[in-house]
């Protein structure tokens, strides 16, 4: 076996180990779903079944429901969603940086300055959104 082969094998087994760590999570998820399902089935079997038309209608403060809820809603929610996506992606970009920060900061402040530039650009956008009133909810 050449060194190259050995490196390849170890890389592969490393990936497998990493994937193996997720098996307990998968099993946990399945167990939780099963628990929920069993409870719902039990409830379905044990509970009474006496439904009437008004019992099966949606709750609208005791009045007869008017129309359905498929209406348009405030644009504010869309704005928040868009601003959220921008900021969330920025934060996700910061994670790998934070992970190696301590290792690299010993060599000098370059890694910090880099991120200051990155955050600076974000702050410009933030000020713009604020000035445009995108963060005000009224």
């Amino acid at each position: 076996m050449t060194t190259e082969d050995m490196v390849k094998t170890s890389a592969r087994s490393k990936t497998e180990d990493m994937l193996n760590e997720y098996i307990p999570i998968l099993i946990l998820t399945i167990t939780a779903a099963l628990f929920a399902a069993i409870n719902l089935v039990l409830s379905h079997l044990l509970g009474p079944r006496k439904s009437s038309r008004s019992k099966l209608s949606v709750y609208e403060s005791g009045m007869k429901p008017r129309g359905d809820a498929r209406h348009r809603f405030s644009i504010k929610f869309y704005l928040i969603a868009m601003v959220f996506i921008i900021f969330d992606i920025e934060v996700v970009f910061l994670y790998p940086w934070a992970l190696i920060f301590r290792q690299y900061v010993a060599a000098g402040p370059f890694i910090l300055i880099e991120m200051l530039v990155f955050i600076g650009i974000l702050v410009l956008g933030y000020i713009y959104v604020w000035k445009k009133g995108g963060l005000t909810w009224d």
Binding site: L28, T29, A32, A33, A36, A37, L40, L42, S57, P65
Partner: peptide
């Protein structure tokens, strides 16, 4: 557990049933 299982007629049945699973499983995971 002993209560009646009510799904209103106007509801989107599949999503209505799926939603509690999603919340329960993810907060447990």
């Amino acid at each position: 557990l002993l209560k009646e299982d009510i799904i209103s007629l106007q509801a989107d049945r599949k999503l209505f049933i799926l939603a509690p699973y999603l919340v329960f499983v993810s907060s447990f995971a």
